[in-house]
Every structure is written in structure tokens, then in C-alpha cells.
Write a protein that binds this DNA or RNA. Structure first.
Lengths: 164, 164
DNA sequence: TGCGAAAGATTCGTGCACAAACTATTATTT
DNA sequence: AAATAATAGTTTGTGCACGAATCTTTCGCA
């Protein structure tokens, strides 16, 4: 029943493959991080800060591809724990500057090792992987600036899917 | 500060590219689905059922790459709405058979059109995309059966990241 | 100079997503 | 046949993830 010849099947859809690959990766790293409290989104935040230095919430949002409403509570908990600092800018009181603490730098170094060794253990083909990364990056750039060509309308299908 | 030459930078990491691509795709389809109540995970469930016919919860879990604890509440709401049926098997009372209703078949046809036209509107290179799909599928197969090579230990870093 | 608009961040409500704990049924062992 | 184990789903608790609404600060402009 696995209709792989059908080009519209789930298995041939880019979005499904990205979706399920992301779920698989999240589970993989969840196991690797165990009960330490580390998660993949937190690793992304720590890495972004390590690479880019001090950032405002919206700059970090752009860098990590997450909305600020996702970051706000995440950053608050991480600051309470001590891996980063949240300081409202004095020259523009709207902005909040986020930066790694020393403890944050230690943490990201440790976590990065685990992430990289986890990847290495998968024995993926390096040229294929870098190609994957390149094409994914290009596709993401397109999709981030795009509007859907068509919107779903359930007018013909009473009742609409609200609250489903 | 965008250190693209560093092979360990976020932008060069497969997991980050999959992660942020998935976020971007989710946002894209959220816009396309508007206020209809449709979501990407629901589309995956409907499509899987259309392709594979009637499935148990665990079969569906495997097919869609989601855990049964994620599916249970999702399926319940979708059944209440009317797009699928949930019937406990008579020959093995532990199993619950999930199947599309006529309304579900109508819904998935509509949603699929929107999904495919949305993708088409992105103007991605077809050979690149099918390559992407193929490599992602292979990588996912590996990761799903894999154990992380190394686990994170915060013993050297007091206090541990618990509750962070 | 004052006032409406815009920008930056947070809060709120809803929906995944998972592990762990739990319930119910079936299979296995003794 | 009774105890035990294994299987299939559900429930529970926590953490993203988002849009919409809100709050504060800054900008623009008359």
C-alpha cells in the first residue's frame, strides 16, 4: 500500500520528509541529552549566541528562525538558570540584549561535542550531507519570503474544520 | 559574524537546517490553512490514511513518524469532528482501527490541492527537490534505528541544567 | 511639543510532541 | 488455570511554537 510511484504520495512530498526527519532528529537528541534539561531549541539559541555574540531578541529570532513569542519564555528560563544574560538596552529601552555567560560558553562547548559526535555516529555520506545542507538552505530562503499560492477554503464543506 | 567557513557552525549543521526548514514550512502552511482548523500534522494523518487505508494507531504512528501519545488526542478530536472513525477491533480489543470517513476523503482532497499548489508556487528545482527527498529519506531511516554515540553529562557543571 | 504610528518585547490561548505512568487486553509461562 | 509478561492505547506533565493582543518606548510629523 506504499504507493511510491505516486509523485503526490506523502513519501514523495518535501514537506513530509522535512517534518518527519525533524521529529526523528528531535527524538535522537532528546535521548542524547537525557535528563540534563538540555533541548534542541536551547542548543540552537546557545550556538547562535556563541557565533554571533550579543544579540537582541529579534536578531536572535531571525538568526534561529524562531518567533520572538517562542523565544521570550525560553530566554527567561535560560537566564534564570544562568547560561545567558538578559539586559534591557540603555540607549533604546525597547531592546533586550541577550548574551552568553561564562557558564553558557561552557555549556555550549559540551553540548556541541555531543551533537557532533551524534551526527558522526550516523555515518552519513559527507558530500551528500553538505549537498543536503546547501539545498535546504536555498529552499528555506525561498519559503521564508513566500506567500502561499492558494488558501484553503472550507466553504463547500459544512461545517468548517474549526475546533477540530 | 556569520562564520560560514566553520564546518561546525549552525548553518552547516544538518540538524539545524532541518529544524529551521521545518519551522519555515509549518508557518507557510499555517498561513495557507488560515482559520480552517487544518494543520500540517492533521494533513499528514489524513494523507497517511488515504494512502494506506484503515490502520491501527501504532501502524499510523509508524507511517507518520509520530508517537502514539501524540496521535491519541489528535485522533480523538478529528473523530469528534467527523473526518475519521475510531473503532476498537473486535478480534483484538486492544487495537483501535482508524479510517477516513467520506468527509475525511473530501477534506484530504481539498487540502492536498492547497499543499501541492503551495509547493509549486515556491518554484523549487524539481531534480534538486527529488534528490533532497531521497537523501532525507535515507538519513531518516538511519537515524530512526540509531542510538546516540554519546550522552550529555553535566557532572562537571554545577548545577545541572535540570529545570532550565 | 505633543500625538499618532511604528517598533521591540512579553503575555495569553491553543495545538503539537514526547516520555513516563497507567489501564485494559492478550499471550506466555508455570 | 493462575500468575506473569508482553502488547496496544490513553492520560499526564512539561516544553516548544505560533498568532493575536498588550505594553512600553521611540519615531515621525504637523
Amino acid at each position: 500500500m506504499n504507493d511510491q510511484s505516486n509523485p503526490n504520495s506523502l513519501e514523495q512530498l518535501l514537506c513530509f520528509n522535512v517534518y518527519s526527519m525533524n521529529l526523528a532528529l528531535s527524538r535522537f537528541y532528546k535521548v542524547a541529552f537525557g535528563k540534563t534539561g538540555m533541548t534542541y531549541p536551547k542548543f540552537v539559541v546557545l550556538s547562535a549566541l556563541e557565533e554571533a555574540g550579543s544579540l537582541t531578541v529579534s536578531e536572535l529570532s531571525k538568526y534561529a528562525g524562531m518567533e520572538s513569542s517562542t523565544l521570550s519564555p525560553l530566554l527567561k528560563r535560560m537566564a534564570d538558570y544562568g547560561v545567558l544574560s538578559r539586559v534591557r538596552s540603555s540607549e533604546d529601552e525597547r531592546r533586550v540584549m541577550i548574551a552568553l555567560t561564562d557558564m553558557g560558553r561552557e555549556a555550549v562547548a559540551l553540548v556541541r561535542e555531543v551533537v557532533l559526535e551524534g551526527l558522526k555516529g550516523l555515518d552519513l555520506d559527507p558530500p551528500q550531507t553538505s549537498q543536503l545542507v546547501r539545498i535546504l538552505g536555498e529552499a528555506r530562503a525561498r519559503i521564508e519570503g513566500a506567500e502561499p499560492a492558494r488558501h484553503l477554503e472550507f466553504g463547500r464543506m459544512p461545517p468548517p474544520l474549526l475546533d477540530c
